[in-house]
Amino acid sequence: MERRAYFVLGDLAANLLTGALAALPAALLTVGWNMWIGMFAGMFLGMLVATLLSATLLLIFFGAMEVMLPCMLTGMLAGMAAGMFVPMGLLTPASAALVGGATGAAVFVFTYGVNAHLSGPLHLEG
C-alpha cells in the first residue's frame, strides 16, 4: 500500500488533471449531439486523452501501472459523463471539467480502497 506523500499526492493530482482534461474535449465536441452518441464518443475521447497523458508525462514522474490504470478509468468515466450530460444540457464545458476532476478524485479513492484490500500475500491453494 503506497504511503509516500510524493506518490499519494501525485496519484491524486494525476487523476484530477486527467479527469478535467478528458472531460473538456468531450464536452466541447458533443454540444448538441444525441446523448447516447455523445456518451460513447466521450468515452473514446476521454480514454484517448488519458492514454496520451498517462503513457507519457505521468508515467515518467509517477510510475507505470499505478498511474496508467486509474487514469485510464478516470478518462473513460469523465469523458462518458461529459459526453452524456453536455448534450442533455445539464453541464457546460467548464462545469464538465469540474465533474471530470471530481471523477478523478472518486477513482483515486476507489483504487486506493481496492488496493488496500488486495495488497499483500495471497493464500495459495494446495
Binding site: 503506497e2 499505478e66 488496493n115 495488497s119 495471497l122
Partner: peptide, 13 residues
C-alpha cells in the same frame, strides 16, 4: 510449483 504470490498493486503488479 508456485510458492508465493504477493500483490504489490491491486492484483496487477
Amino acid at each position: 510449483t508456485v510458492r508465493a504470490v504477493d500483490n504489490v498493486y491491486l492484483d496487477v503488479v
